[in-house]
Simulated scan of single mutants.
Amino acid sequence: MSNCKALSMPSTPIVKLSLSKSPPFRDPTLFRSIVGGLQYLTFTCPDISFAVNRIFQFVHCPTNLHWQATKCILRYLFGTVYHGLFLAKSTSLTLSVFSDADRGGSLDDHKSTSGYALYVGSNLVSWGSQK
């Protein structure tokens, strides 16, 4: 995918991933390998955490739709190679926390996904998401 077209977002909010909407992916080992690498990458790229969490829920039985979602993340990363976390010097120690959740957004088990971001001044210091 070295010559792919870059995307501006790591996932499409319109596409709801499910176990039964697509035929099985031809190479589950390749899928698991790439998704595992993406999960490791979330330590330094918090902007892909939610999208990786969504596809990681299907590593046991990936479909073609899950593979397409994975390729969207890779295309987003291709366009943001030079992005990263920047810690700026700040005299402000203001603590800000932002969170969000979808209510029963999973089509398979109707569980919610939530996430948060914690800032000290203008610096992102902690983040996470969970189902």
Results as ranks from 00 to 15, higher is better:
100 D>I: 14
52 V>W: 02
31 F>N: 05
76 Y>T: 02
122 S>F: 15
18 S>D: 12
53 N>Q: 13
11 S>I: 13
97 V>P: 01
28 P>R: 06
50 F>K: 00
119 Y>D: 10
68 Q>Y: 07
100 D>R: 05
51 A>S: 15
29 T>I: 05
101 A>Y: 06
9 M>E: 09
8 S>L: 07
39 Q>M: 12
77 L>T: 02
125 V>A: 02
129 S>N: 15
30 L>K: 10
6 A>G: 15
114 S>C: 02
107 L>R: 01
115 G>P: 03
86 F>M: 11
6 A>R: 12
57 Q>D: 04
103 R>Q: 11
79 G>M: 11
92 S>Q: 06
15 V>W: 01
108 D>I: 00
6 A>K: 11
128 G>K: 12
114 S>A: 05
42 T>K: 07
107 L>E: 07
68 Q>W: 02
37 G>Q: 14
69 A>I: 10
18 S>F: 01
81 V>F: 02
98 F>I: 06
97 V>Y: 06
4 C>K: 07
35 V>D: 07
130 Q>V: 09
16 K>Y: 03
9 M>V: 10
91 T>A: 09
44 T>V: 09
96 S>Y: 06
97 V>K: 02
25 F>L: 06
96 S>C: 12
2 S>P: 00
35 V>Y: 04
104 G>T: 04
9 M>S: 13
129 S>P: 11
24 P>R: 02
85 L>D: 07
1 M>T: 01
99 S>K: 00
1 M>I: 08
55 I>L: 05
100 D>A: 04
21 K>M: 06
107 L>G: 01
93 L>W: 15
109 D>S: 06
111 K>N: 13
45 C>T: 09
9 M>F: 14
49 S>H: 08
85 L>R: 08
43 F>T: 04
123 N>Y: 05
30 L>E: 02
25 F>I: 04
36 G>N: 01
120 V>Q: 14
19 L>H: 09
24 P>S: 04
67 W>C: 13
118 L>D: 05
88 A>H: 08
46 P>V: 03
36 G>K: 01
7 L>C: 06
59 V>Y: 09
7 L>I: 00
52 V>D: 09
127 W>V: 08
27 D>V: 08
35 V>T: 09
93 L>V: 10
72 C>Q: 14
70 T>E: 03
125 V>K: 13
105 G>W: 11
85 L>P: 03
111 K>D: 06
44 T>W: 12
114 S>D: 07
70 T>N: 09
90 S>A: 01
35 V>F: 11
103 R>G: 00
92 S>D: 10
74 L>F: 00
120 V>G: 06
7 L>R: 12
83 H>P: 08
98 F>Q: 11
10 P>W: 04
